[in-house]
Design a protein around this nucleic acid. Structure first.
Lengths: 185, 185
DNA sequence: ATGGATTGACTAAAATTTCAGTTAGAGTCG
DNA sequence: CGACTCTAACTGAAATTTTAGTCAATCCAT
């Protein structure tokens, strides 16, 4: 599964070749077919793997650091996919691929819609913790904007046209802007 | 080139088959190779074509409507890719595909980077017309955020998880927020 | 010695690319 | 005019390459 994640990060879901995956994992192609039914099965299992793994990582923090306040938690949650770490880059790439593939493969849409909704809701909750007086509707649209922005910036970062640091700054500025906005109502 | 844009919008960059393109264009596959060096050449030229074509269309307006003020022009420019029109949807889809493909095909990156830069600069200029007192740096980051947001929302719209109207509202709200922000410095 | 894990060598199908021409029209000369 | 040459656009068919998927044989831990 780790080899599959690496290959997908390198070639994309649609660029994954079973032979390349086998080489990456250091085994024969036949063994891949012994463990997985077919190419679609490889993809399905790998996306599950990536999904599970995405839930488990978080931004690194010194073990003795002070606990995060809601604002910091919000920022961390939004910057989760924008980190200079091989695993995270693999996960972000795979997610981006999934999003892009969903345009052409309707059966992927359901999973994508669900995952997106969960993420947006999570961000809306965190925004609500920083701005307890804001209405649910205002929090929802702010969360939609922030998450869509992160997705757009993530794509630019991964395609090498935007440095990671800059992408992160843009997100933090946007958080600042949205919070100011929610505060002034 | 029009046929290529249609096929890419239907199947994606990596789903484009030279044979399908030939059929769509009503010619033989051999003719494709007469006019283009190879598959990569088709892709490169199609990217240019889509890029050029994106520059030529604009939101429809009644012929007797009042001329646009800078704020309206800005909004139109950002909403350009988010319209319920076959050609525009086709262009947006193809454009999104090319962005996604550029992650895995470095030879596409240069064109992508250039086109993105031009767009960001255009939006920065329009922002500057609405907020003449803002610094160039502030305009630039605002433009980067707005354009990245549009890209993120466009992807959600095209993959069917966000209604077009809602996407457009989110963009307009974001413009409002960025302009307020630029005004208060 | 048994059974799950593994492989090299293979097939079939699909996709890209090449090639040996054909065709239609434009220019040229007598 | 009209017989000719020349060329760009075009095609059918076949070569080549790429890729998913199969299978009989082998390895190896228990």
């Amino acid at each position: 599964m780790e080899a599959a994640a690496r290959v997908i990060a390198r070639r994309g879901v649609r660029g994954l070749r079973v032979e390349e995956l086998a080489a990456e994992a250091g085994v024969s192609t036949a063994l891949i077919y012994y463990h997985f039914k077919d190419r679609a099965g490889i993809l399905r299992r790998t996306l599950e793997f990536i999904n599970d793994r995405a839930g488990s990582y978080t931004t690194e923090r010194a073990p003795d650091a002070a606990p995060l306040d809601p604002r910091q938690e919000l920022e961390q949650a939004l910057l989760l996919e924008l980190q200079d770490d091989d695993t995270i880059r693999e996960n972000s790439t795979a997610w981006g691929e999934l999003r892009a593939s969903a345009i052409f493969e309707p059966h992927l849409r359901e999973d994508l819609a669900k995952a997106t909704l969960v993420w947006v809701q999570e961000i809306a909750d965190l925004l609500g913790r920083v701005r307890p007086m804001a209405t649910a509707a205002a929090l929802a649209v702010a969360a939609e904007r922030l998450t869509a922005l992160v997705e757009g910036l993530s794509m630019r970062w991964l395609s090498g046209i935007l440095p990671l640091d800059h992408a992160r700054e843009l997100v933090l500025d946007a958080v600042e802007a949205e919070l100011e906005r929610l505060g002034r109502r």
